[in-house]
Structures are given as structure tokens and as C-alpha cells.
């Protein structure tokens, strides 16, 4: 019964968020800087929500999110710069390139059963490796920024004069990511993933093909982030190897963990709260004392983790009542 209640609450919260998000540009739209900030927060929301598929449901702490983001950005950006190829198709291709890379990495990793912290470290190293490769690969990357062609308003090139259209694009991505997430978590694959996330050996004994399941989760995750990467490149107007950012990739995973592993809207909630707070603090404190906003942010992060280890999202969940459990125990004793 609680499950049903939680489901209703979840839908209600998401609907509430969506309405606010849809009208937000009316409030912030006049100020482009604020618009960019809100869009940035939403990008983190999209990435953390996508991360929930591999990290929350399947329990694999993947720290390579910005690798897929960068690959998507470089694919679509390079196609646009070199061949004047529209990013609307380019972003799908970017997603596919990210998927191809994810498979290239995921198949051997899962084949050799690299898991837990070792999986996290391998994927963390991946981002740094890609950064170095793109720094040295002069044809595509190189240490100099490559700017996308500038148009003040061209639908074909996905270049708009304002951040508002990008905001709606990212919002659309967020809705897609949330839908994919909730569909997966209710599907057979979702239950398999939850099972292997809890105990991989047990899931395998029960007949779950853990390798295939993890790979499928990885594919969904990398595709969503790859597509987001193409939009990301268009928002900022350039591509650069610094898109492969190890520190921020760790942050995405942290948002997913802090939000509540496996809860569809948890990572989004964490992104809104933590990244929102961080950006606000940065805007208000950053100019005076560098580093102070990070101190406040990290203290908040540690406190949240210590006092809500099951995730921020559990604030908004009905819990199973304890008396029911005790009754069961008594029956067993009798």
C-alpha cells in the first residue's frame, strides 16, 4: 500500500516540478545569466537522472559521465564545424558514439567482473584518458577551443540568440530521462538490475544474466548523456577537451547517491538542491572569498549523507510502519 502511495506522491512531485520548470523562463527569462545558471542546474539533473539507471538501479558506481558527455559534444560539434551537419541529427549520432564507446569499455569490464570500487576507479580513469587523447588529437580536439559557427538564430544549426530555447531543450531531455528511468524501474530489466545491485552473485544464481543487464543499463545511460552532450556543446558554443572533467563526473555520481539510489526523482532532487545551492553560493560568496562556497557546499554534502544515508528523496516517502514488522515477528515465535 505504501508503494502505491509513494508512487502517487512521486507523480505529484514530478508534476509540480514540471509546472514550475515550464514557467521558470517567465521569471528568469529576462536575465540571460540566470537562465544559463538554471540550465546548468538542469543539465546536472539530466546527467544524475541518467546515472540513476547504472548507478542507482544496477549499483555500478560509474564515474565516466563526462566522458560520454564529451564524446557526444565532440561528435555533434565536429560534424557541425566540418560538414555543416545539423546538430538535430548530430546529437543522435553523438549519443550513438557514446554508446559505442560505452560498449567498448563495458564489455571487457563486465566480462572480467570488475565491480564496486574497482569499476568506479576504472571509469574515473577513462575520463582522464579521453581528455589526454583529445588534447593530443589535433584534427578533432587540441588544446585550443573550437568554436561552433555563430548564428544569432538558426534552427538548422541549433544556434539561438538566447538561452531560453536551450533551457526547454534540456527540460525535454530531463523529461525523457525521467520517463526512461521510471519505465526501466518498473520493467523486468529494472527488477533484474535492482536484484543484481543488491547482491550480484545471488542474482546470478537465480538466473539473471547480469552481464547483459548491466550492459543494457550502460547503453541507456550513455546514450542519454551523449545526446545531452551535443546540446551542451551548442549551449556553450565551443568544444574543448576540458569537457572531459573527472572531478565533475564524480559529482554526478555523488548527486545520484545523495538523492537516493534507485529512486527515480531522487537524483534530480539532489541536483536541484545541491547544485542550486552551490551556484547560489558561488554567485554570492565566490567573488569575495574563493573557496568559501565549496566549504559550505561540502559541509552540506557530508551532513546530508550522514543524516539521510538512504537519500534526500526519503524525506518525501511514506515509510513502512514498525508495528507491522513486530507482529510478523511474534507470529514466527509462536
Amino acid at each position: 500500500m505504501n508503494h502505491k502511495k509513494n508512487q502517487n506522491l512521486e507523480n505529484l512531485l514530478l508534476l509540480f516540478f514540471l509546472i514550475i520548470a515550464l514557467v521558470a523562463p517567465l521569471i528568469f527569462g529576462s536575465n540571460q545569466y540566470n537562465m544559463l545558471l538554471v540550465t546548468t542546474v538542469l543539465i546536472y539533473g539530466v546527467m544524475a537522472t541518467s546515472w540513476n539507471i547504472i548507478g542507482g538501479l544496477a549499483g555500478q558506481v560509474d564515474l565516466a559521465s563526462f566522458a560520454y558527455l564529451g564524446l557526444g559534444a565532440f561528435t555533434s560539434g565536429t560534424l557541425l564545424i566540418r560538414f555543416n551537419f545539423t546538430p538535430w541529427i548530430g546529437m543522435i549520432l553523438g549519443g550513438l558514439v557514446a554508446v559505442a564507446f560505452a560498449l567498448l569499455i563495458g564489455i571487457p569490464l563486465f566480462r572480467f567482473r570488475i565491480k564496486e570500487v574497482w569499476y568506479a576507479l576504472t571509469t574515473c580513469a577513462l575520463v582522464e584518458i579521453l581528455k589526454v587523447i583529445f588534447n593530443m588529437w589535433e584534427e578533432i580536439g587540441g588544446p585550443v577551443e573550437r568554436y561552433l559557427p555563430y548564428f544569432s538564430g538558426s534552427l538548422y544549426h541549433m544556434r539561438f540568440g538566447s538561452y531560453v530555447p536551450y533551457y526547454y531543450l534540456i527540460l525535454g531531455m530531463l523529461v525523457i530521462a525521467l520517463l526512461v528511468n521510471s519505465r526501466i524501474s518498473r520493467s523486468k530489466l529494472g527488477f533484474y538490475l535492482k536484484a543484481l545491485g543488491e547482491d550480484e552473485a545471488a542474482a546470478e544464481v537465480l538466473g539473471v544474466n547480469t552481464r547483459a543487464c548491466k550492459l543494457r543499463a550502460l547503453v541507456y545511460y550513455s546514450f542519454l548523456i551523449g545526446v545531452t552532450g551535443a546540446i551542451y556543446a551548442n549551449i556553450y558554443g565551443f568544444i574543448h577537451p576540458s569537457f572531459f572533467n573527472g572531478q565533475e563526473s564524480i559529482k554526478i555520481a555523488i548527486l545520484g547517491i545523495v538523492g537516493g539510489r534507485g529512486i527515480t526523482y531522487g537524483p534530480l532532487l539532489a541536483a536541484l538542491l545541491l547544485v542550486g545551492t552551490q551556484e547560489l553560493l558561488r554567485a554570492s560568496l565566490g567573488a569575495e572569498v574563493s573557496g568559501l562556497y565549496l566549504v559550505v557546499y561540502s559541509v552540506i554534502l557530508i551532513l546530508v549523507v550522514l543524516f539521510k544515508p538512504k537519500g534526500i528523496a526519503t524525506f518525501f516517502q511514506y515509510r513502512n510502519k514498525k508495528p507491522a514488522k513486530q507482529e510478523v515477528k511474534k507470529k514466527n515465535v509462536v
Binding site: V117, I254, I257, V258, S298, L301, I302, V305, L306
Partner: peptide, 8 residues
């Protein structure tokens, strides 16, 4: 959770 707290 330990990863989150140590990253913090």
C-alpha cells in the same frame, strides 16, 4: 555512501 562522504 562511503564514497559520497569521502568525496565530500
Amino acid at each position: 555512501i562511503q564514497i559520497a562522504v569521502t568525496v565530500g
